[in-house]
Design a protein around this nucleic acid. Structure first.
Lengths: 249, 249
DNA sequence: ACAAAAGTGTTAATAATACACCCATGG
DNA sequence: CCATGGGTGTATTATTAACACTTTTGT
């Protein structure tokens, strides 16, 4: 079955189950190789990259929809999610399905709600769903090279801006780093998100004083130099810090 | 024509013109009597208070819709507007139109986009539209006494929280104060939004150093005491400060 | 005269920033 | 030995906060 036929078949089913005109697009950030990356799908149809978005069932809350979409399209669960913007230009998806007729579910006008999510890529294997050719992490530095569908580039940019503002007030990292990590990995994450270098000594003291880290009895072996200590987040204090907010960075 | 019949008549017209399932609700803040207030309508139907929300035309951007809604329902134009949240619980409006049948446009499930707006109440006369009995500014302190429809109380609360966070990073007041105002009026506004008292001397220096005020060659006459100087915002610097953000308050 | 307003000085506490040094250790 | 990491000291600068005093001026 070609991708065009596949989409046509799905359309009527979608009309039954989902609200028209409304979609949700999660921007899922990961951290790897000292760089931020975003989870994107390449649809069979059109070969453009897309956020792993989806629609809202008539019988579910919007919140529930995003969680479900994330699970269905990327196999992701238990993730920190936050709404960061609404994208409602009337022609934002005008051209994408232009070679279908107006009755296609997908071709409606959609207002989409943007959510950002932080996720540690180590924790799952990427499996593209039936409509997608691949599901891949794309480094932010590679984004300019790929073709993103509709306004998804704008959505990603706004998500990144929101993430940057967020990290100045709330701790981040719980979902972006592996369970065990070193201090310099954490620092790199902050530097990459904030887009500037931080002083190591000051970072060390500040993060320590937050009390959100637990020092483990292990080191990361195998490097060329002294084995760095491993840390993990102290869940309880981390959540407390999320509520109260931090001083600025 | 009673209010029930009025709603029924409107329903089919609405289905033609507007997107289903999607609405926008502006929370319009005003400042008066040293207190914040919110613009609300009391619908003829049901006599509950509502935000002056509306629907999104099939042929307009979401942004345009909010501007139009504000104008149609409250006669407000040229206002600072910002999206602050999406409210999408599946049953959020379940009971409001319960004595109509399912074909009524209004009775659909709606996901609503919340916007907050700041507006100087001096600048217009309130005129309730044809569906509303009254259109009034309600002081925040009076909110607990009135009956708000659906989840509109939650929406207002979230708007207020967002406003409070915003004022710590961006200047506010341009649209909330009359064109000419005194420093103590501005300070009162900040105090009311932040919910705490500020030191006068420090406030004076800080606001001066921001350079967003122009001191006018006038005083406010007529008070019982020394006539306070009048200020207005320096539009250019005000906008600059909006972009760059401030230090915290 | 009084009370509100404008403007300034001062100080203490705290936070942010930048550097520099020490030690430890794996290879 | 040396590069990296861990840990600490310290000086500088800004920012916030609290308070107090002066001067101005409308009624």
């Amino acid at each position: 079955m070609d991708s065009r036929q596949q989409i046509l078949n799905r359309s009527n089913e979608l009309k039954e189950v989902f609200l028209p005109h409304l979609s949700a697009d999660p921007v899922i950030f990961g951290f790897d190789q000292n760089e931020l990356k975003v989870l994107l799908l390449k649809m069979n149809y059109r070969k453009q990259w897309l956020l792993p978005g989806g629609y809202v069932r008539k019988d579910e809350d919007l919140d529930e929809a995003v969680v479900r979409i994330l699970k269905e399209r990327a196999g992701i669960t238990d993730v920190y999610l936050e709404e960061f913007g609404v994208f409602g230009k009337k022609n934002r998806s005008e051209f994408y399905f232009e070679d279908f007729d107006e009755t296609l579910f997908h071709k409606q006008r959609f207002v989409t709600i943007g959510y950002y999510a932080l996720y540690n890529p180590d924790r799952f294997n990427l499996i593209a769903d039936e409509f997608s050719e691949t599901c891949e992490w794309i480094y932010l530095s590679k984004l300019p090279e790929i073709v993103l569908a509709m306004d998804h580039r704008d959505i990603i940019e706004k998500a990144l801006l929101t993430l940057r503002e967020k990290i100045s007030h709330k701790p981040i990292g719980y979902n972006l780093l592996p369970e065990k990590f070193t201090l310099s990995e954490l620092q790199k994450l902050y530097e990459v998100i904030l887009g500037k270098e931080l002083n190591r000594g000051n970072f060390y003291r500040k993060i320590k004083n937050l009390g959100i880290l637990k020092k483990l009895d292990e080191q990361r072996k195998g490097g060329a130099h002294k084995a760095p200590d491993l840390y993990s987040f102290d869940e309880e204090n981390y959540l407390k810090a999320l509520e109260n907010g931090l001083s600025s960075w």
